[in-house]
Design a binder for these strands. Structure first.
Lengths: 359, 359
DNA sequence: CTGAAAGCGCTTACAG
DNA sequence: CTGAAAGCGCTTACAG
């Protein structure tokens, strides 16, 4: 068995007790009595290596407790096996679920996830993308389209494949995996119209840097417009996505005479709807009887809060899986074609909505 | 201005239109007419470089759109500027908040976060740590102590500083930043005893690979024991952390005669308590009057659900900040001393708890 | 303050 | 199937 010492003598070989040095691939090669090329192949292309030799390598690696150095690998192979994801915030279970799903897909493929949060700040998102390019991400998932053009330019310039998640729009310039939010809110509004509602109000979260919210509002307005019912500005409140604020807005919206005030309140998400329900309780109004109210997301809570919140559920785990799967396919394949995928939310009718009260 | 071409001619310099190559530090050096060392210093140690020269470098970098390659940097400097965090799951807002906080601290220090989820599987956590060592994390935050000894051995062997978060125990072998869960549940139980409760029940989540839950249960049992009140096994239910299951368990626990059934129900967290409240509604029992119930976490919902849930709030954002700050201090400094930090949860008394019912 | 040059730990044509 | 050797893109003693 050849046991010629490696050419470069290193601190590793110091007499005894010298500062322990990191174990490198070369050390494994020496112990196994093979070349570094063979060690590398034993790990990355095992089928190309003689079985006995491979075993010797693996044993040596285990004995030395060798842990490969990803930076070395990345530099030599020009592959980092890193992919990035940028979400607005971790404090929303919808995005957390997408990330969970992506994690599990990426892990299965031997990829590691770099996570960035933009906190709904477009420039922060841009900085994150720069940082990720530095890290050499091979692909990127990013929530929504509300990002500076420079961000997408950067991605294209560096040939990093990416997908936009959560949002789906037919005329989007990006590969999208998500929901058509405008359509979703048209659907919900239509349902309420069919229940006989004619006086609508809406409680929404902030629209800045969040086209999804804009689309949702348009969905409501479009559907009402088609029915010849405008949504007057004073019946649409926009403010912090906060339960207490929603409760206050609800109380205010319901201030008028019973035969004039809204009978249907479309909320931008479940949190706002649940907040509004608290406001209703204070007024002594019963959801599903005195008025109807709807949300979006179907949080765990939505079905548990009496009388149950009518809302729409989006399979965000699936979005994450699809996005990650698509990215794995796109890496290395500049061809395509790769197609967007629309996920249709599931309408979940519960007690909070019902026929419009008589008059 | 010296403009000698770099020695290695590369595809970059191909006549025209050749496949565009990545811009490297060397390209910046050539354009700026300086050595690679100067480019490197202009970025990493700007104060050591003549201002005019630095400007030339920065301009050249901007003109070429150079994005540094982290793998090259890591390999040359033996510093990756990556730190890892391992949490059980992203689907819990407490961990998501810790991660958010760490992200922002790390970003501020020029570090990037690798996130791993163990899904409460100790071996998965171990694999994540191995992957992170491959990536060269310089430090690691990990939720809880419930991990295989090999995991911590690996960290020590590779001299990677780490902190355990969320949990704090005086006699823990690890640097901890978190809560003494046993003490927290003793406190809660004592409070209920002071309100006159004598018949207790408890609804908890699974204990496996989760010492925190074990500690919480012990906290209840210890405090009751000190008061001469055992917690009989049939009054302690353990099962999935699921609202419906908590509701069912609650109904079952309350099946006995009014003068025999529990008057105080301590739940392992808010989710279980809110589920149990749903069960109470079905039974026509009013929390705070007919019985008392408590949670843990103080989810956004806890204060909004009538009559308000008595619970304990933990500043998980602070835990993340402290953990990240500590890790930033530990990197490079093998000395110390570094101390654990205990965060005491804030007891939040709300309507769901009250004096024990008369008989 | 600046530069020439070695080297970080891997992978991968290339040759055998 | 295996090995010798060049090279990936940076940083950093070292010398001036």
């Amino acid at each position: 068995m050849t046991d010629s010492p490696s050419k470069k003598t290193r601190r590793l070989r110091e007499p005894n007790g010298g500062a322990r040095k990191t174990v490198r691939l070369e050390d494994v090669a020496v112990l196994a009595g093979v070349s570094t090329a063979t060690v590398s192949r034993s790990i990355n292309e095992p089928e190309k290596v003689n079985a006995e030799m491979r075993k010797r390598v693996l044993d040596a690696a285990a004995e030395l407790g060798w842990i490969p150095n990803a930076a070395g690998r990345a530099l030599a192979s020009n592959r980092t096996h890193i992919v990035g994801a940028i979400i607005p915030t971790l404090d929303a279970e919808i995005f957390a679920r997408q990330v969970s799903a992506m994690q599990s897909v990426f892990t299965r493929h031997g990829y590691t996830l770099f996570l960035g949060c933009s906190n709904y700040d477009p420039m922060a998102g841009y900085q994150q993308v720069r940082a990720m390019l530095t890290r050499g991400v091979e692909a990127l998932a990013i929530v929504g389209e509300d990002h500076p053009a420079e961000l997408f330019d950067l991605l294209k310039h560096h040939r990093v494949p990416y997908v936009v998640t959560y949002t789906y729009r037919l005329d989007s310039p990006h590969l999208c995996i998500g929901v058509d939010h405008r359509k979703a809110f048209r659907t919900m509004t239509r349902r309420l119209l069919e229940m006989g509602h004619r006086r609508f109000a809406a409680i929404f979260q902030p629209t800045e840097s969040n086209r999804r919210v804009v689309d949702r509002i348009h969905g409501v307005a479009d559907e009402l417009g088609d029915a010849g019912l405008p949504l007057p500005p004073e019946r649409l409140t926009i403010g912090p996505a906060d339960m207490d604020r929603a409760a206050r807005d609800f109380v205010e919206l319901m201030a008028g005479r019973p035969d004039e005030r809204p009978t249907a309140v479309v909320c931008g998400n479940d949190l706002l709807a649940i907040g509004a329900l608290n406001g209703a309780r204070d007024l002594g109004l019963v959801a599903g009887r005195d008025f109807s109210i709807t949300g979006f997301d179907d949080l765990a809570l939505a079905s548990r809060i009496p009388p149950g919140l009518t809302t729409q559920w989006v399979d965000n785990y699936r979005i994450g899986e699809l996005a990650a799967g698509k990215l794995m396919n796109m890496i290395g394949k500049s061809d395509g074609p790769f197609e967007s995928a629309e996920l249709v939310p599931e309408l979940r009718l519960r007690g909070s909505s019902g026929p419009a009260p008589s008059p």
